[in-house]
Design a protein around this nucleic acid. Structure first.
Length: 497
DNA sequence: CGGCAAAAACGTACGTTTTTGCCGGTGCGGTACT
């Protein structure tokens, strides 16, 4: 009853959404919690309310600085004024003043990386935390192993902070990812709340092509026919740009591309235009989507197959947040998997490169580690991976590393890399299998997330004979919006309209 | 690996063909430089 009263007092709601209350109760009784809840369940409310009821403060680890800024704004708007984000957006003096008054804040957002900064870390250690929240916790597994290794340091940091209760939240985590989260956050005896990833209003279609031209034609047909707004995912940055060029040539103007190679401002602009419905379609790499809360996305097309099932589920999950019928269409060509395969094979150093990096470590004084890593031709991700692990093993601080230690380190790293490759190749094989299999796509997907298979229903997937044409039918609205937008642009350039 | 663009090689003077070489998702912070 006490929880319902607090819910009423702070939010004005009468009832919790599924999952919220159970997680809150576990947190308040001092348990670590892994919560996998679908988007729109109100994950934020859980740790806001928990922090308030614990009369303490929460440290929230968030993967993207842009997301953090949005969250801080949202917190402030909903009355949680004592909220701040510690990241590189802050200039030196602002950072200084936040750190000096850290105890006055109730909610502090951080990236995993910024806690490596010793000033920030010591400031964080100087106050008491009642809650350690890891938002989008699947990043630990998805990015921690190589791309953003400091995700693997979170357990260590939490321990230093005096082991506050840990709440890991995500919307999609396959069984292996759930295991990784529990393992790398060292959440012993954690309560696990897993809710279904099934999104009944999203119909799943897979179409295979042996000819890339035919696939392009089909994509253009779908983009023309399907009711928007929509997202198209491609494998490469260039692929996204090229598809947009083709669409522009065909007179479809309310389309733009988005990928990680663009400037921050440019990315923000495209994102805002899409959220404001000035753009009806966004063609992008997997850089786009996290933290996007546009409720009315009607379709997600995969122009190339993604590297694993969980990535696919995350990406199609951006459709139909308003619970209206939406379509996910994967257009598959066997060459799609070559690029993910290439990344898996090449992002981490091979045995020869490991030998080279760790040979004659004592002469390294004349050569910085990063010089050596570059000389060995190791990818940027591979370089970060090596730096992280060499740093962790302590060899960076030793003047002369004994032969025995060097050899054992080589062995450890080689084993780690091989294991990681095997896992990723396995995931790649899983999605290939999922694509090729003729059965119910939804059931197979749910099985991958450790869920019971569901009974087939009428509107389900291409394996269950659902019809994609029922999602056809563009609205007049789009061209209207475009004209208004075009008029505004003309006015900006002082042309007659 | 496979696709694509720039460089080199054509065989005859600037356009076409062949060869070489490089790149390919995801983001943070901080430092060096405009």
């Amino acid at each position: 009853m006490q929880l319902e009263a607090a819910l009423k007092q702070y939010y004005g709601f009468d009832d919790f959404r599924p999952g919220q209350k159970e997680i809150l109760e576990d947190i308040l009784s001092g348990h670590d919690v892994l919560g996998m809840l679908p988007t729109g369940t109100g994950k934020t409310l859980i740790y806001q309310l928990a922090t308030v009821l614990l009369k303490g403060r929460a440290l929230i680890v968030s993967p993207l600085v842009s997301l953090m800024q949005d969250q801080v704004d949202q917190f402030k708007q909903t009355g949680f004024k004592r909220t701040v984000a510690l990241n590189s957006f802050l200039d030196h003096s602002d950072k200084q003043s936040v750190l000096n008054h850290l105890k006055d804040y109730q909610f502090v957002f951080v990236s995993p990386e910024i806690m490596q900064n010793k000033y920030i870390r010591s400031a964080l250690l100087s106050v008491n935390w009642s809650l350690f929240v890891v938002d989008e916790a699947h990043c630990i597994s998805q990015w921690g192993h190589e791309f953003r290794p400091y995700y693997l340091d979170l357990a260590f940091i939490r321990k230093k902070l005096g082991n506050p209760v840990c709440l890991a939240l995500t919307a999609t985590a396959a069984v292996k990812v759930q295991e990784d989260i529990l393992k790398y956050l060292e959440m012993k005896d954690a309560k696990v709340h897993i809710h279904s990833v099934n999104r009944p209003n999203i119909s799943i279609f897979v179409e295979s092509f042996s000819d890339v031209e035919q696939k392009l034609d089909r994509a253009l047909e779908l983009i023309t026919e399907l009711k928007g707004p929509g997202i198209v995912y491609t494998n490469t940055r260039r692929g996204a740009e090229q598809l947009v060029t083709v669409l522009h040539e065909r007179g479809i103007q309310d389309v733009s591309y988005y990928h990680g190679g663009m400037d921050q401002d440019e990315r923000l602009l495209v994102q805002k235009q899409f959220l404001n419905s000035q753009l009806q379609l966004i063609v992008c790499t997997n850089a786009f989507g996290m933290g996007i809360n546009k409720p009315d996305i009607r379709f997600v097309i995969h122009y190339n197959a993604p590297a694993n099932v969980e990535g696919y589920v995350q990406e199609i999950g951006r459709a139909g947040r308003d619970l209206q019928p939406s379509a996910a269409i994967l257009l598959y060509h066997p060459s799609d998997l070559e690029i993910p395969f290439h990344f898996i094979e090449n992002e981490l150093p091979d045995d020869n490169q490991i030998d080279y990096i760790l040979s004659d470590y004592d002469v390294l004084a004349e050569q910085t580690l990063s010089e050596r890593l570059q000389l060995a031709g190791i990818s940027e991700t591979g370089q970060r991976f090596m730096e992280y692990h060499l740093n962790n093993s302590g060899v960076l601080y030793e003047k002369c590393v004994p032969e025995v230690k060097r050899e054992s380190l080589k062995k450890i790293l080689k084993k780690k890399i091989e294991e990681r490759k095997r896992e990723k190749l396995n995931s790649l094989r899983m999605i290939e299998k999922w694509i090729m299999d003729e059965g119910c796509k939804r059931s197979m997907m749910l099985k991958y997330f450790g869920e019971e298979e569901i009974a087939e229903k009428d509107y389900c997937c291409s394996g269950c004979q659902d019809e994609l044409t029922r999602f056809y039918g563009k609205e007049e609205k789009e061209t209207h919006i475009y004209q208004v937008w075009e008029d505004e642009l003309k006015r900006l350039f002082r042309q007659e309209v």
